[in-house]
Design a protein around this nucleic acid. Structure first.
Length: 485
RNA sequence: GCCCCCAUCGUCUAGGGGCUAGGACGCCACCCUCUCAAGGUGGAAACAGGGGUUCAAUUCCCCUUGGGGGCACCA
């Protein structure tokens, strides 16, 4: 059975590239009827942020990703938080020292910095020069007894080459002489990422190591350590990064960045999942829209593309709009009600909203656009925020005539029964009014649109008038006349 | 500096030794139309360059160029 894991560090919110790897891993586990595990990699206590784990888990939940084992779940391979597994790493590190595959080293960070400085000056690649290998066991024991801080370094092979297979790139080979003796246990007793993930992935029986492709250069070191431990290599899947529109790293500069930001910005989880799953992977030559169920059926790690992709917000927006339009009216109404309540701080009638949804569904791409599109339906203290557009759109540039026409419309509206003020009647009434006054219907509609909605862009006018209702419409017409006088 | 990875329309991609190089987003035009959308129809738009291999290369190999990443007691 395949077992894949998502192993984030609790140092911040997951961003798109990072979560895409999680999505792919999860989808593949689902497809293969395998298991998906969450492991928190918090071996750097200094960088660990309070609450980050919760936010990571929330990001996953938002997308509908579940897990078989993880920090909030029990499982026979736990604990799933690395800081709770310290002794395990120490044990394996000490064993490697015992078998002479690793050694204690006593350089201080500043000494190491000096070594690198010197190498840089000489145009050499920076890296540990292996001087700790020269310290014999007795000396080492002496230092240890004196409580001199130490790290444990792994003895990298110095000759030959190391190869491994990356699932989406094939065989990758490096010369061992480019590998230096890396630290596996830090002086604070915590393991480094390089060591901890190897131990955990083995103990947790992870079959596919999925991670960002920035790890490719250090994978040969991991391979060497795994060989020293006598363990089997996992299948490596190094996923490319997602670039910002400027070709650089995706960052705050490019708008929302973390998954939670996208949630906040009104994106639907299906859309984010669809977009992310299909950037770097394609089902065939024509599929652009795909459900989560279909993804679970068809997604395959073997088809991943090796090249980095550029984030395309337009396409995400388009996809989100597709899903917004596909959503059942009631479901959409519920979601929009929450957004409006939050934005307007008013009681939003679900009944009214259900009438509005059909006429705005094709006009909305993101949940949080609803307030701009339809907020005017609910604002109690309706004002013309922009008097200028009212003045600019009066009929035939003639205030008096405009007022006369508006008064005649008020008169007609007043005579009509509220129940009869429905779309078809409103349209008929307004069209004949325009004809009677010899004005272009379009001009009249635009003026009324501004008066009723306060906006130049709005949902269809007649439906809008019906939903806003007789009294409010008349009120707004009167306000407009006042403002024009 | 050394090492590694990547390269099809602006973007996401399909394809792969012989194709009019396909789809989608975005863009443009037209249709629909009370604004804006949505929808429909059509259009412009790509195999980075140079060498090989081959009857044939965009596809395979090499180099160049360009882009990205790594070389921490961070992950």
């Amino acid at each position: 059975m395949v077992r894949l894991r998502y192993a984030p560090s609790p140092t911040g919110d997951p961003h798109l590239g990072n979560i895409r790897t999680a999505i792919w891993s999860w989808l593949y586990a689902k497809k293969m009827n395998g298991q998906f595990i969450i492991r928190i990699e918090d071996t750097d206590q200094a960088r660990t942020i309070d609450g980050a784990t919760d936010r990571i888990l929330n990001s996953l939940s938002f997308l509908g990703i579940d897990w078989d084992e993880g920090p909030t779940t029990s499982g026979k391979y736990g604990p799933y938080i690395q800081s709770k597994r310290k002794e395990t790493y120490v044990k394996y590190a000490e064993e490697l020292v015992q078998s002479d595959l690793a050694y204690y080293a006593f350089e201080t960070p500043s000494e190491l910095a000096a070594i690198r400085e010197e190498q840089k000056k000489q145009g050499l690649p920076p890296g540990y020069d292996g001087r700790g290998r020269l310290i014999n066991k007795t000396q080492a024991k002496e230092f240890l007894d004196k409580k001199i801080p130490y790290v444990i370094r792994f003895k990298m092979p110095q000759e030959g080459e190391t190869s491994f297979t990356d699932l989406i790139r094939g065989k990758i080979t490096v010369q061992n002489k480019t590998l230096d003796d890396l630290i596996i246990l830090k002086s604070d007793g915590f393991p480094t990422y390089h060591f901890a993930h190897i131990i955990d992935d083995h103990l947790m029986e992870i079959t596919h190591v999925t991670r960002g492709d920035e790890w490719i250069p250090s994978t040969p070191k991991h391979v060497a350590i795994i060989a020293a431990l006598g363990w089997e290599l996992p299948i490596y899947v190094h996923t490319p990064i997602i670039l910002g529109p400027d070709g650089g790293k995706l960052s705050k500069r490019h708008g929302a960045r973390s998954v939670l930001d996208y949630k906040e910005d009104g994106y639907l989880p299906q859309a984010v999942m669809n977009y992310l799953a299909m950037t770097g992977w394609a089902l065939d030559d024509k599929t652009n829209i795909i459900s989560i169920d279909e993804l679970k059926k068809h997604f395959d790690l073997h088809q991943l593309l090796p090249n980095p992709a550029t984030f395309d917000e337009d396409k995400l927006n388009w996809l989100n709009g597709i899903y917004m339009r596909e959503m059942p009216l009631d479901e959409l109404a519920n979601i929009l009600q929450k957004q409006l309540t939050k934005d307007l701080n008013e009681d939003i009638s679900l009944e009214t909203l259900k009438k509005i949804v059909p006429i705005i569904q094709e006009r909305i791409n993101k949940i949080n656009e609803i307030t701009n599109i339809a907020g005017f339906f609910f604002k109690k203290d309706f004002q013309f925020t922009d008097l200028e557009i009212l003045h600019k759109n009066i009929l035939e540039n003639n205030v008096e005539k405009t007022i006369t026409v508006l008064l005649s419309i008020i008169e007609k509206f007043e005579k009509i029964d509220e129940k009869k003020l429905i779309t078809a009647n409103v349209e008929q009434l307004l069209r004949s009014n325009a004809e009677a006054n010899n004005i272009k219907p379009g001009k009249l509609f635009m003026l009324l649109r501004i008066i009723v909605t306060g906006q130049k862009v709005s949902p269809p006018l007649f439906e809008t008038i019906e939903i806003v209702g007789k009294n409010k419409v008349i009120q707004r017409l009167q306000t407009a006349i006042q403002k024009l006088s």
